[in-house]
Design a protein around this nucleic acid. Structure first.
Lengths: 204, 204
DNA sequence: GTCTATAGGGCGATAGAC
DNA sequence: GTCTATCGCCCTATAGAC
């Protein structure tokens, strides 16, 4: 088996094309998460991955196809995480908490959930909108039909997830010294607030 | 892909500049809600308002200033709606429901909540991010300090609102014939599902 | 106050060398 | 497989007439 280690930089040794593709997808996830589909440029993705801009386009055909690949990869990670939490030992009553913790941990992959959020507000785009709806429904189905959530449990879990994503997207942790902001963040992720602030605060 | 209606035709009578400004803000709210801050063009706003593109820029200085004006107007409407619901007669236990109904009714102003959502995922932009955080916190404060919500009630209400916004942004109503999509929409807006579908489905 | 014309810059995509 | 060079479009903003 080949190593998955990421080697980056102009002086890095040649790497397999497949690895380079994964490297570009990682970089693209970060850039799309930060600036959104329209705001992200293929040049920014290229610079973040250490390759040339035309090569990024060559690899995926179009910027839209690249974004769809980012979404597909993000969705698979999300579903994998949920399925792992569902299969992990523990009582059924505890499942909600286990999935919730797993979800917050996903945030450490900066850009992953934010790329999904950007897709979720792009329903007006026919291609991206269709992919976004399909992905969202797939998450709902895993909760309902594999996790055993009833409709209200699934709704409540997704609602909390959307609020969490929104607080990360809006960089609410930047205002953590505001008492109301602090109270809100603490109520959203009681056992993970410090973690949340650390990974989602804008670097100073 | 744009379905933004032209509010005023070329042959419309002359109107006061102040009214024209409000007209442009209305059009901009719809366009920004549909395409987001980066994806929206000042030309699309101009066409939707029936004025020339340079005039739109002239009126607000920059596209960014226009978007900030749209956000400010949307936030004021949101806060007004909440305060009206808080002041309306009814038991304290019922307030959550009254504000929720008022919130769903706000969705009939297509673009208003979606423009806010686009701002909420733009925390990485220094100017827009700051405005978005300030607006979000203002909503939280009204719920907590004027509506008498405790932290958990406020969190839960905001979470439901974010999920609702997401379902509208993703155009989930387009999949209303899917059993899972239908179940999800019904659980989010039990008494308003039909209304929600009507106003948020993509025109065929 | 509102328009037409256009400058100026950025970005996705293509061509073609190596 | 990967790069450099560049085309052509689109979009914001400015200039200036009416």
């Amino acid at each position: 088996m080949s190593s998955v280690t990421v080697i980056r930089g102009d002086s890095a040794p040649r790497m397999r094309a497949e690895d380079r593709r994964e490297l570009v997808l990682e970089a693209a996830t970060a850039v799309f998460g930060e600036r959104g589909y329209v705001g992200a440029t293929t040049d920014a993705v290229a610079k973040a991955a250490g390759v040339s801009q035309p090569y990024v386009v060559r690899m995926f055909g179009t910027k839209e196809a690249l974004f769809l690949a980012v979404l597909e990869r993000a969705l698979q990670r999300l579903l994998d995480t949920f399925r792992t939490a569902i299969a992990s030992p523990g009582s059924a009553e505890d499942l909600n908490h286990r999935i919730g913790v797993a979800y917050v941990d996903l945030l450490s992959d900066r850009g992953l959930l934010l790329s999904l959020m950007h897709a979720f507000v792009s329903g007006a785009d026919p291609v991206i909108g269709r992919a976004a709806r399909r992905g969202f429904l797939q998450v709902y189905r895993v909760l309902r039909h594999e996790g055993g959530f009833d409709p209200e449990e699934a709704r409540s879990f997704l609602a909390g997830g959307m609020l969490l994503n929104t607080l990360v997207g809006i960089r609410m942790a930047d205002d953590y010294d505001d008492p109301d902001a602090r109270e809100l963040i603490d109520s959203v992720a009681p056992t993970k607030a410090e973690f949340l602030v650390r990974i989602s605060r804008t670097p100073r």
